[in-house]
Design a protein around this nucleic acid. Structure first.
Lengths: 257, 257
DNA sequence: AAGCAGCGTCCTGATAGTTTGGACGCGCCC
DNA sequence: GGGCGCGTCCAAACTATCAGGACGCTGCTT
């Protein structure tokens, strides 16, 4: 691990919706480094377009993020398939559909399709990042990691409490992940957001590796009323996506890879 | 300029729609560095989420790009204003409207709104990156840099020929940029794409700095028929955006910065 | 109005991380 | 089955990075 690259990552970590601009002094204080080092990192990141220099020497995320985002879309074969399926699901059950993947131990929402009567989910716009120990998709993706990997992730990011229902005990989480592996689905009962529940199922690629997860979210009341149906629906949907991923031949056109 | 950060930038530069995956050997060859160094850079970038490790040790753009994209949106005050204006323009004249900014010497398309009869513009989806010496927005943004900066940009990225009309002579470009500064608008007459022309005008922030450009693109035939009207329209539109940027008080609500 | 405090920026020597080249194991193609 | 190419990993040589301080500036206080 190159230390300079690690510092680049730590600086990017500092940015969120409340902190859209940062100066050298602020960065130096938060990361416990010298001001000159912070300044050098910021100017260098600005030169490669990751950051952008504002009036007055403060730095915000650069336009290059837009072009990078464009490159992400193409190289994940599951993404267009999952999106098409999410659209069908949203039309079918009217709820909020999420597609998420694991990135550096955290959950990234890759896609989001609201249904007609979908619940407002404030924390999960596309690109939003959440810890993996809560949320249906998070626990599900975590459950399909190597056991050693799970510990690394938990050590790295901790187990913050988001609601009274969040699982913050490591042994309890182990048990939960075991259940998830056994059942093939993960439930989130108000662990992320009070009043909001969801059920998630895994999307496996052609090699059987879990590369993403899809979920149906709904207000807890409506969710419990339809729990069985939603569970069956999400499992069918993700298995459908996995089937398409396993089948490289579509419409008689052979894969050209 | 931190060398390691520069290398991160050079690796990101290697990715485009045709090269969505790269391995250490490929990177080492293209950047003339040792394979072990390329490998170390790739793994480090993967650890901070900029890249993502595929099956078989190849690396593609990571999910973090999605979350970064989300952070770009908020911190450019002109962006929502320009978008609203672009929507009005597209409805009004029916053509393709672009909003672009300069990033590390290249043009990044920040927004794109197609009108009802808009021409298909294949090269300019949001996040697309183009050299600055061609295209209306590119020349316009270039024209408002410091003269020394212009040379730096041209030295860095060259002046590739995209169509027979592309300006590839440096003196000719200087003259063109001078005209653009004088007239306040930049024309692109098939310099990027045969059959496609556009007119661009600058968006200036409260300090008078040109932070972005907006353009109306159309098939050359229709464009020349409406040239005067389009020019007046885009100038009015960008001045309208600039006026809103200069006025921190909107609807009687004082700015809370 | 002058002084002060805080910020971003830049410079130079001391240091520690980066770079290199090679060796290993693996899968693929011949 | 053998060879080739790839991704991965290791230890020493070296070069870029790091820390501390000084400068100019802006905005605020006294």
């Amino acid at each position: 691990m190159l230390l300079t690259v690690q510092n680049v990552g730590r600086i990017l970590d500092l940015y969120d919706l409340e902190h859209a601009e940062l100066g050298p002094t602020e960065v130096a204080a938060k990361l416990a480094m010298s001001k000159s080092k912070a300044h050098l990192l910021l100017t260098s990141m600005a030169e490669i377009g990751l950051l952008r220099r504002n009036h007055g020497g403060r730095y915000c995320i650069g336009w290059r993020a837009l072009s990078l985002e464009r490159l992400v879309a193409g190289n994940a074969p599951f993404r267009p398939l999952a999106r098409a399926m999410a659209l069908r699901l949203a039309r079918h059950c009217g709820e909020m559909i999420h597609v998420a993947a694991l990135d550096a131990g955290r959950v990234v929402y890759v896609d989001r399709v609201p249904g007609a009567r979908a619940a407002k989910v404030p924390v999960s716009s596309v690109g939003a990042v959440l810890p993996a120990h809560c949320s249906g998709v998070g626990k599900l993706l975590l459950a399909h990691l190597e056991p050693a990997e799970i510990d690394v992730v938990l050590d790295q990011h901790g187990m913050a409490r988001l609601t009274p229902a969040t699982i913050c005990d490591r042994e309890a989480l182990y048990a939960e992940l075991h259940r998830i592996r056994r059942d093939g689905v993960a439930f989130d009962r108000e662990e992320v957001q009070a009043g909001l529940s969801c059920v998630a199922a895994p999307i496996a690629d052609a090699d059987g590796n879990v590369v993403a997860a899809m979920s149906i979210s709904a207000p807890t009341r409506r969710f419990t009323d339809n729990e069985g149906a939603y569970r069956a629906t999400i499992v069918n949907a993700t298995e459908g996506v996995a089937r398409q991923l396993r089948a490289p031949v579509l419409d008689g056109v052979p894969d050209v890879s």
